[in-house]
Nucleic acid binder design. Structure first.
Lengths: 218, 218
DNA sequence: CGCCCGATTGATAACGCTCAAGGCAAGTGG
DNA sequence: CCACTTGCCTTGAGCGTTATCAATCGGGCG
């Protein structure tokens, strides 16, 4: 697990110092908020098990799912800029996260080059991910969006050592729709369509990619 | 200008070191690319004058404008994660930018706390901006998107000391549409509509916000 | 068992896209 | 100086995708 969190390519002797910074895991039960928009930004997180969605709320009350993070992925970068989180993080299943206090982490970064680089890289990866997501949602049809989501999730599962072909959507159709900028009905119809065309198999939130190639071709 | 770039709240004695890192300004002529997607990531930039758009291209050739940065704003953060830029930066007008080599900047960050904090804050602000943009584009109507864009640009102009009510859109209707996830015709119609309803005045790319309140209310 | 939340499916309508024609302003060349 | 070109913008008409509204279904849980 350790290598999935913050460090990667760290010299071994620095590990103890890192561990002195990382608090032990904290459990988050399904539906619970790890943090909420507006909360003071004090910690970064790494998901150990489970899945967590990030949600943004605007003045008028409309909510949107801005991201889905699964085991092995970092969380909380949205607070970097200010001293408050800009969105809420809510557990989709019972999960557990590593808590990394930000201030000590900064100290560590000052002493350890690779740590600093790693933190900035995480921020950069997140930027790239969000920008890619934005492009998908802006310029593609509902079918394409859903297909891309499936492929993205598949790839991330694979990266973390899980199955690339069989996994859980983790979110309800409504959350998925919110994330992709379409309605839940459209998500449902699209998934049904994919199943009819034998691109996927579907049972509730469980999917099996039957023909990833065809999905890639929209 | 200096205070608009990277440093803010820096001790005075650190300025010389910063200046030793920042290259002198480089001019970029209208239409020219400061960097392109895939280019190695070596520099960060701060826009001194002018305006620059960031553009992402996908496999199939479709392009999307992912951002608009004006004088005083940072640029190039999209390379942080990897060692290559994920999008292209193209000048919308003749502009000039400060060039900040990344490697020396990192050195500097290690020695100067506020510098490190500032860099991370810039990354965080960018994340927040992109996520907000994504939310706007996913969950709002064309009218709302255009209105939000106008208000956002107005606010950023004000922040940098320019007029909050009279400014230039900087982009063509097509680029604007790409940025907002609608077609150029829709942008045109929407702007015309706003003008008819006396919310704005419009002459080419020049706008004057007549009633920002009404714009906020969509 | 019955309730309830989530998912599916259908009918209808609206919003925004596509295609198409024209206008305006700036630049170019005769 | 005027005709012509070119790029950008505006406006219109028709159509398609997706939202909306609504009914039904199914599975999990008290």
């Amino acid at each position: 697990m350790r290598q999935l969190c913050m460090p990667r390519g760290l010299a071994n002797e620095t590990l103890p110092r890192l561990e002195s910074v990382i608090c032990i895991a904290r459990p988050v039960t399904r539906g619970e908020a790890l943090y909420r928009g507006g909360d003071p930004f004090r910690y970064l997180y790494a998901i150990r098990t489970g899945a967590i969605k990030t949600v943004m709320t605007q003045r008028d009350g409309r909510e949107q799912v801005t991201g889905l993070r699964i085991a092995g992925e970092p969380l909380g970068l949205d607070g970097l800029g200010s001293n408050a989180h800009t969105c809420s993080a809510i557990a989709l299943e019972d999960s557990s996260v590593c808590i990394v206090p930000y201030a000590p982490l900064l100290e560590l970064c000052r002493d350890i080059d690779t740590m600093q680089a790693r933190l900035l890289a995480l921020a950069g990866e997140h930027i790239a991910r969000v920008e890619a997501q934005m492009m998908v949602n802006d310029s593609m049809s509902a079918d394409e969006r859903v297909a891309r989501f499936l492929l993205d999730l598949s790839e991330r599962n694979a990266q973390r050592g899980y199955s690339a072909t069989e996994f859980s959507l983790r979110m309800t159709r409504e959350e998925l729709g919110s994330h992709l900028g379409v309605t839940l009905e459209t998500v449902s119809r699209t998934l049904s369509g994919f199943q009819r065309r034998r691109l996927i198999e579907l049972r509730g939130k469980a999917v099996r990619l039957v023909c990833a190639e065809a999905l890639r071709a929209v």
